[in-house]
């Protein structure tokens, strides 16, 4: 990988984090507005509730797609943490292949469901559910690409735990 490509990747990762942070900030604000409008102004509003729930879904799936690193993901590491790097590489390839296969097989049906949801709209903002749920499509595609990359790294001989962004940039 060239240095400029790596720089672009890091830039994109920071922007993805900006977006996730903005979503959380917006959720926080929506809650405060909701309390203020109901209690201080006596004008209960409901759209804030809807906004927070939508942001929650988008934050989790956007974050899982583009922001959360391998190290931050919650895993069951009793075996994973106690084997050598060679074994861990094989484990990474096996799980990646299984995940890619299953997510890819489900993709047409998932796409079908999400496009079907155009028939419904949210209660307040009247957002069509196919748009609201489209983040799941993004999530599936991003995850498949990420695991193809992880499997490829493992095949090239990079054990998963060595794949660390701080180490990657330490050569500069």
């Amino acid at each position: 990988m060239t240095a400029s490509l790596r720089a672009t990747g890091a830039w994109l990762a920071r922007r993805a984090e900006n977006v996730a942070s903005a979503m959380l900030a917006a959720m926080f604000l929506a809650f405060l507005l909701q309390i203020a409008f109901r209690y201080v102004l006596g004008l209960p509003i409901g759209w804030t509730h809807e906004v927070s729930v939508i942001l929650w879904i988008w934050l989790v799936l956007w974050g899982a797609s583009f922001v959360v690193s391998e190290r931050e993901e919650i895993r069951f590491d009793i075996i994973y943490g106690s084997v050598g790097s060679g074994t861990r590489r094989i484990m990474a390839i096996v799980t990646a292949v299984a995940l890619i296969a299953l997510y890819a097989i489900s993709f047409p049906a998932v796409l079908d469901y999400i496009t079907f949801m155009k028939v419904e709209k949210t209660g307040y903002l009247k957002i069509r559910f196919d748009w609201l749920f489209s983040i799941y499509i993004v999530f599936i595609i991003a995850t498949i690409i990420r695991y193809i990359w992880l499997a490829w790294q493992a095949m090239r001989g990079v054990a998963p735990d060595d794949f660390d962004p701080t180490k990657a940039s330490s050569g500069v």
Partner: peptide
């Protein structure tokens, strides 16, 4: 939640929450 339900509350004369 939702406009339809909130409207039902308004149609009773209440402040729907």
């Amino acid at each position: 939640g939702g406009d339809a339900w909130q409207f039902l509350g308004q149609s009773l004369g209440a402040n729907p929450t």
